[in-house]
């Protein structure tokens, strides 16, 4: 039984090490792997919107920091391309 547990622990350790290695490769370094797990993964969501869904209307702040507008206000007779992102 002890031998079986040792094997199980060994395999688990190898799998964890492999997963960490893959994360490091994807992120670029162990520090970045930590950053990915700590800060990125908790915020990344696939979401429930699909092609054909009603586009949610959301109020945004204009670049002047004062005015507000809704995404739907920008819908006209043409398709609207929405590009989400940040500076960093």
């Amino acid at each position: 039984m002890k031998r079986l547990l040792k094997w199980f622990a060994g395999i688990l350790a190898v799998l964890l090490l492999a997963a960490f290695g893959v994360l490091c490769y994807m992120a670029g370094s162990p520090k970045d792997a930590y950053g990915m797990v700590r800060y990125a993964l908790p915020h990344m969501r696939r979401g429930t919107l699909q092609v054909g869904s009603d586009a949610p209307d959301v109020r945004l702040v204009a670049l002047d920091g004062i005015d507000r507008f809704h995404i739907r206000e920008r819908l006209g007779r043409r398709p609207l391309v929405l590009a989400f992102g940040s500076f960093t």
Binding site: G47, L49, V51, D54, R72, L80, L82, F84
Partner: peptide, 18 residues
Amino acid sequence: AYAAWPERLYIIDETGHI
């Protein structure tokens, strides 16, 4: 609403559908 972080693209048509 759009599960947008960190970056994502959508196109909405004239009728308000994705």
